[in-house]
Design a protein around this nucleic acid. Structure first.
Lengths: 183, 183
DNA sequence: TTATATGCAAACAATTTGCACGTAA
DNA sequence: TTACGTGCAAATTGTTTGCATATAA
């Protein structure tokens, strides 16, 4: 996202906070700014790692809470991903995704990059209210493709191959936990 | 899924196990059968709760491992969901989803229920290899719609409203952990 | 000044690992 | 009989809560 767009989004964010009586805190601004700067749909821990340098003393709890608030006020969304950690997306307009089923990397595709025509299905019988849609293209990203030798399954390859970064929570100071078990 | 289809899938599952030199264990068969019987894209814990009655002594670890194996051999997939837990889907053919952004409920839509035309985008520049796609329709399910009072944001309503069931792991016998803190 | 947000520690929840034992082939 | 799969316990990772303190408005 370019600087101009970021400014617009940041201004809108402050406006929405004020409209709702929410304080515009440094944490909220910096975290939202960081999210705007990424298109990889980070986990809360990913956001934390990127902003902790700019916000000394920042707590992970705050990152979780702020991200949830950003969704609340409508300036971010929860991304739909295959893995076991929640991910956030700063894009709120219609867009689509490329998803690597091996390393879970998510990449945005703008709506105009995708030639499609999608009619909203009639789900009145299910009493479901559709707000939007997005197309997920599943496959393998460049890195995982290289590593996926024939004969090796996607999942098992993932276990030994391109792993998703792990959270470092509770590894910094060991309170009781023995570290270094996983080299 | 009807009985006939289940039998076909089960037979194919056994065939694939043998082709790969994997044992057809009771656990694998029962877990796959349970997954086939559900269209709600359960978490490993959800699967565990459903099958533990039929498999005394079953361990959650095994459920995680078996589900991963099912993905490996291609008889199940990981579902893309917004929340913080991994979910599995017994459908491997092209189909779409209705996703409640409040309670995370996933519902299947067969491809022929959706009027659409989607061309695979040109992602050669990104060296991404697309295998399939699925359309996600986001919105609110019937239950959450009723509970979403105007003025209340989706996320904050979710906190007090329709919650996702939580895992009971480590609550059964307390080993050191104090229970009952959350009423 | 004061309601709201943050930080901290601990609880809670979800997932993975190492290893001994069991079982399908 | 033997390689592979499972169960168990504990380690690890991810998320939420309660409460004291700090801070935006």
């Amino acid at each position: 996202m370019n600087e101009r767009q970021k400014q617009v989004r940041l201004a809108r964010f402050e406006e929405l906070c004020r409209a709702r009586g929410l304080s515009v805190t440094v944490q909220r601004r910096v975290i939202f700014e960081a999210l705007l700067g990424r298109s990889d749909h980070p986990t809360p821990d990913g956001v934390y790692e990127r902003v902790k340098g700019r916000l000394p003393g920042l707590s992970r709890t705050t990152v979780y809470r702020v991200l949830e608030t950003l969704v609340d006020i409508g300036v971010a969304t929860k991304a739909c991903a295959p893995g076991a950690a929640i991910r956030f997306d700063p894009l709120t307009h219609r867009h689509h995704h490329l998803i690597c089923m091996r390393c879970e990397k998510l990449t945005d595709l703008e709506d105009d990059e995708v030639v499609s025509r999608v009619e909203w299905p009639d789900v009145r019988a299910r009493a479901f209210q559709i707000h939007n849609y997005s197309i997920h293209f599943h496959g393998l990203c460049a890195a995982c493709r290289r590593k996926a030798e024939p004969g090796k399954s996607i999942s098992s390859a993932a276990r030994g191959g391109a792993k998703k970064e792990k959270c470092t929570h509770r590894r910094e100071k060991s309170h009781g936990a023995k570290r270094g078990k996983k080299q």
